[in-house]
């Protein structure tokens, strides 16, 4: 349905922005929910997870788009997985080298980027069918959309659960933390809250467009 489904179409703004809003991987397509729930207990963790996933998305989009005419259809999924796994392993080592604290906070979820369907979905649905430039821009948009979603969830959870945002105290020392928001149920509460907000905004917009068209 997107305007860029054909290979020869020129790059448009939608190539980039569809991942941010219209096809946001978490809030609209409901992909990659496992990391979105599991490592979104603080805004910093969420941001790190988002950046790591964006890097994997960019790298795999680039390589898959480059190799798209060389990989036979029958082994494409296996090839995509190997390529994605390579970048995930790289990210894993790099984060481990950059900060031990961050590495411990993200835990097994860095390795689990490999099964994030938002990434394999991009490889299958976009990168394997488009030119390198398109694939990179689209992958970057999707990565940003994923990061945005994680930070939105992580931000709310951190504000309520710790009284801080990106580690900066918002309410002073007397703040009563809402422990439940740091625990797994809090992830579900906040994610569903954002899903409701996004759905409401989308419905409003569609209603307006319909009214406009008529």
């Amino acid at each position: 349905m997107s305007a860029t489904s054909s290979k020869d179409k020129p790059m448009t703004a939608t190539t980039f922005t569809e991942g941010l809003w219209k096809e946001n991987p978490v809030f609209v397509m409901l992909l990659g929910l496992c990391p979105a729930l599991a490592v979104s207990n603080t805004a910093v963790n969420a941001l790190a997870m988002g950046v790591a996933s964006t890097f994997v998305l960019l790298g795999s989009s680039l390589l898959i788009s480059l190799l798209r005419n060389l990989i036979p259809k029958q082994v494409r999924i296996a090839s995509y997985i190997i390529i994605i796994a390579t970048f995930v392993t790289a990210v894993d080592y790099i984060i481990h080298a950059l900060s031990l604290e961050l590495y411990n906070a993200l835990g097994a979820f860095i390795q689990l980027i490999v099964v994030n369907c938002a990434i394999l979905g991009r490889a299958e649905a976009y990168a394997s069918k488009h030119k390198v430039g398109h694939a990179l821009v689209n992958g970057f948009g999707m990565g940003l959309g994923f990061t945005l979603a994680l930070v939105l969830v992580g931000g709310v959870r951190e504000i309520l659960g710790f009284g801080t945002l990106f580690g900066v105290s918002l309410f002073g020392a007397q703040f009563q933390p809402w422990a439940v928001f740091i625990l797994p149920p809090g992830g579900f509460f906040v994610l569903s809250f954002w899903l409701v907000v996004f759905a409401a905004v989308r419905r409003n917009r569609e209603r307006k467009e319909a009214a406009h068209g008529a």
Binding site: Q176, W178, A179, V180, F181, L183
Partner: peptide
């Protein structure tokens, strides 16, 4: 149950 999970000490 929500209060128990969110505000355990109070």
């Amino acid at each position: 149950a929500f209060a128990q999970a969110a505000f355990t000490v109070p």
